[in-house]
């Protein structure tokens, strides 16, 4: 009988089995990497805005409190985006004719809100409330990062469910006193944070066991 296959077929067979294995593992690994990459999560991806608004300038250089613009953050689910009037309360006085601010002026003139590009967009099946987080002592910086260092806004955290749960299981890692909630530069050692967090858990009646119930976020 003659051979059907060349001797090299032995090597080829092994290499191709190995290759298929590697390709499958690589493919799965690629998908794993993809869903966690900035391409999917938009972490640190700068979104273009109709007006190149700089948080770095307004917060760090000028020293405006977060709540001046995001005025409902302590009382409502949504932190709130400022109406054009809020912008104009200053910009009618300074930089009133800057080209950069032309969209703001036309918004006011036409009585049409500025259409900002949304940076943080949670899925519709998640009921997120800024109010409760702020009231219980979660700092802005915990979720939004150092906004005071962002020339244009980006997402600092992936805001996946895994990430949410991480804090809901161990909220003490991120709790702070009411006066520190909007502070961007508060740094505590981990022992201090642990002690502070434990104390605030008690004081704010936070029960981590119940924070991971489905219906806390999905109602």
């Amino acid at each position: 009988m003659s051979q059907i296959f060349h001797p090299s077929a032995n090597t080829l067979a092994r290499v191709s089995i190995l290759g298929i294995g590697i390709a499958v593992l690589g493919g799965v690994g690629g998908v794993f990497a993809y869903v966690r990459s900035p391409y999917q999560t938009q972490v640190q991806v700068i979104r273009n805005q109709p007006v190149p608004f700089s948080h770095a300038h307004h917060v760090r250089d000028v020293g405006i409190d977060c709540r001046y613009c995001h005025s409902t953050v302590e009382t409502a689910s949504s932190a709130g985006l400022p109406p054009t009037h809020t912008c104009m309360s200053c910009h009618s006085q300074i930089w009133g004719s800057a080209d950069m601010l032309a969209p703001v002026r036309s918004s006011l003139a036409e009585n049409k809100p500025i259409v900002w590009t949304r940076v943080h967009d949670l899925p519709d099946f998640v009921y997120f409330s800024h109010n409760i987080h702020v009231q219980k002592g979660v700092g802005c910086v915990s979720c939004h990062g150092r906004v005071d260092e962002m020339p244009l806004a980006w997402k600092a955290e992936p805001m996946t469910m895994e990430w949410c749960l991480d804090c809901h299981r161990h909220p003490e890692k991120h709790l702070r006193d009411p006066q520190d909630v909007v502070r961007m530069d508060l740094v505590l050692s981990s022992q201090e944070q642990q002690a502070k967090g434990k104390e605030l858990l008690m004081r704010n009646h936070i029960e981590p066991d119940r924070l991971t119930n489905c219906s806390v976020c999905h109602r």
Partner: peptide
Amino acid sequence: WLLPYPNTMGL
């Protein structure tokens, strides 16, 4: 989603 794998939902 039916399979156990480390997903971004932490589930």
